[in-house]
Amino acid sequence: MSSNPISNSVNTKRDAPQARPALSAWRDWLGVIPFFLFVFLFIALPSFRLLIGSFQDSDGQFTLKNFADLMDPSILGAYWVTIRISLTTALGGGLLGFLMAYAVTVGGLPRWVRSALLTFSGVASNFAGVPLAFAFITTLGRIGMVTVFLKLLGIDLYDKGFSLYSFWGLSLTYMYFQFPLMVLTITPALDGLRREWREAAENLGATSFQYWTRVALPILTPAILGTMILLFGNAFGAYATALSLTGGFINLITILIGSQIKGDVLHNVGLGYALALGMVVVMGVMMTIYYFLRRRSERWLKQ
């Protein structure tokens, strides 16, 4: 080793890696250009158009009437029913999905059940719109297979107050794609629960209930919250399934937007844009709540 600090310094400089040429840095970004292009064309531009359009009347003049119209009881009712259906299916689908994921991960079911459930979930979570509505009509509609079969057994679902075209019927239909999404997103989190945590808890005297309430569920909370907000958004923005199933019988906000933008009777594009902006606000509020809950629940995570 040289004792001369100057020569050391010179050597260090000579050995230091050279800065990468600008061209190479640009090349690294080439792969993600289509992504940014999509984000700009199909998220940023429409959002901007939506924002501007919500402040315009049918002649393109500035107005606040579209927002004043949002206070109409029928529109507020549409928001409320959409939020309710989203919350119901997020909680119901979330719970069902969690229990199923639990059964195939820590529940000790055979490996093939896990593979079957995950494959089904991958397909079912994307099975929505007209095909899903049709599938439910043919099984649980007024003359659906299951309805008729149960009738033969002396159980008339529709006589007992059930209707596929009601709030609960639509919720049930939504659950079909909600719970598989929960299964897909929560399974890795459940896999991440280390066996030693359970054993350590048991070894210290905890019952299974104490382990779940004090260790496992608190550890899973950030993942569960994240999935619940995903499920909420999934149901909140659903359009084709509800329209195909109920034909506008249930006044969802997405159906209302559709009829304002492309309908012949209620055509008011500006109001449609304002309704959509209202949805953005609702999702924003949900995301804010989620953000605070998540921050509280993951204080122990490495920042």
């Binding site: 054993e199 048991e202 550890i219 995570l301």
Partner: peptide
């Protein structure tokens, strides 16, 4: 006897500390 009834303390190779506590 089940592990939670034995009053036996165990230290694991991977520490197994509860990360949320």
């Amino acid at each position: 006897k089940s592990p939670n009834e034995r009053n036996v303390g165990m230290v694991f190779q991977s520490y197994a500390l509860f990360p949320n506590m």
